[in-house]
Design a protein around this nucleic acid. Structure first.
Lengths: 293, 293
DNA sequence: TACGGTTACGCTTTTCGTAATTATC
DNA sequence: GATAATTACGAAAAGCGTAACCGTA
């Protein structure tokens, strides 16, 4: 199970074509065919159907493992490279859409004082991409957000890839965002279970994703009636205000034109967490120190 | 970063010798030398010092990743092999020392009725070995125990290796086990933080490991005054009764000769969890069904 | 000097590309 | 019949073992 073979298998499965994968990876179609054949021979199972090219049952299982495996492989490589390489004067930061950036911004200002010619890059991206960025070394630092029980760290899919420091940056209450006239708007607080069958807007990049609620509440409810793919908080506010459905947001992100009802019963918080991989960059480590004060 | 090279590197680091690793893996000393050289060339960093043979800083980092990586690689292989192979009439179960086995025993009895000629094997082993056994296919099913917040699953080191089913088998209160005359014995309950600096017995195989308490309480207290390596509950009871120190146990495991004070404040429970890898064996799946009723 | 890791060298195996072949839509 | 995967084959590279070669206790 050479990583090389794994990589081409993933590419073929993603592209749905041997030739497309070959082009993508800089091989000939023949080489890819041979690699897949080698992998299937090694594992003793067909991994792909041909015409159309699609993963078999076994192939699907392998795909579930291949991603994390390749990511971790990349993570080791960056880790060791960083250990040896000259410290760079760059700090590439990845942010998930709802990450609380106040303390980060303040700390960055102080970091500027220490390292005037540091090039700081900020980029907003989904959680999975942020973790992948850490692994490949494209990012030096990420700020992730999600929901968690009071003192617990975030529960990330495919986590503990990159051992490193985890620093809690912010914890704030979760609010149910409602249009002003809504029947629930008068409530002092609301429990999550009673909201399972409400009319929900799934806005994975502008509010707490419904999938995260399902995971936290151990249920398969919270089904979306409307999905908003964008990141614009105003657009989401408008949708909620117009009565298209509800969403759950960290307090800070609830527009004043809406009513926010605290979520009570399962004690859950919106948590923002900084992750600095091992060993990190000098600027990253310094930033963590500044944030720890 | 061929898994082959990784495996060799791990062996060399563990043995502290190229020749010993070569013998262990069935290579010549020369081949091992070349493999390590290739790995170092690939990563661009020396991984081992020679004479004496010991991991460098970079080598240590690589070792931290190599274990999980190889384990996961093994897990995929078993998973795919199981998918293809004929269903075996074997059920190898791994148990961690404090796993609650009542429901398992009952379910096994009912399983016997369905599958009279099934060979069931039970084996007690540490958590890490149990997870490794699942990965390699030596075990079909494991019962793990640990401490966790009320509805949360166990937080395992190097977890989510093997995607599969997780079934909660038992949750029971944690008790502080005390000798009868102890000052704390009169208390109705006790909080964990106030116990950080007590006189502790670390009995990782006969009680909740102190390391688990440290992790759960986010502290580096709970330092052992005495360590008991065995698994015998009577021996531990004798040590506690003789005043050598305290230990925390699931309620069921506290000997009647001792006083058990419930742990209050951080709401923690002793949890026993069954893990069945994907796709598992037929007998394993049947057992999970029986346990789910 | 001896023990143990490295290097040189040759053989074998693997791997890839070109090109001919086959199979499916 | 065209598109796309497979197979055949030769060239290049990688991997391992034997054996000669250091470098350190």
């Amino acid at each position: 199970m050479d990583p090389h073979l794994l990589r081409t298998f993933v590419a073929v499965a993603r592209e749905g074509s041997f030739s497309a994968a070959a082009q993508e990876l800089g091989y000939t179609q023949s080489a890819v065919s041979q690699q897949i054949a080698a992998l299937e021979a090694d594992l003793g199972v067909p991994l792909l159907t041909r015409r159309p090219v699609a993963p078999t049952e076994a192939g699907t299982r392998l795909l579930e493992h291949a991603g994390p495996l390749l990511l971790r492989l990349a993570a080791v490589r960056t880790e060791l490279t960083r250990l040896a390489a000259a410290p760079s004067a760059r700090l590439a930061i990845g942010l998930t859409p709802l990450a609380a950036t106040d303390r980060l911004a303040a700390a960055l200002a102080r970091l500027r004082a220490d390292l005037p010619q540091l090039l700081v890059t900020l980029e907003t991206l989904p959680t999975a991409r942020a973790l992948a960025g850490l692994a490949t070394g494209e990012l030096d630092l990420v700020l992730l957000d999600g929901i968690a029980a009071p003192t617990d760290p975030l529960h990330l899919p495919e986590a503990d890839q990159t051992p490193g420091s985890v620093l809690m940056v912010a914890e704030e209450p979760l609010l149910l965002a409602l249009p002003d006239g809504h029947p629930l708007a008068g409530r002092r607080e609301s429990g999550l279970p009673e909201l399972v069958d409400a009319r929900w807007i799934d806005a994975p990049e502008a509010a707490v994703p419904l999938a995260a609620l399902r995971a936290a509440a151990h249920t398969d409810g919270f089904r979306p009636h409307l999905r908003y793919q964008g990141t614009d908080p105003h657009a989401l506010t408008a949708l909620i205000a117009a009565g298209h459905g509800l969403a759950i947001l960290p307090r800070r992100a609830v527009d004043p034109r809406l009513t926010g009802v605290p979520i009570g019963r399962p004690r859950l918080l919106h948590r923002t967490e900084l992750r600095l991989p091992h060993p990190g960059t000098p600027a990253g480590r310094r930033l963590v120190e500044l944030l720890s004060d």
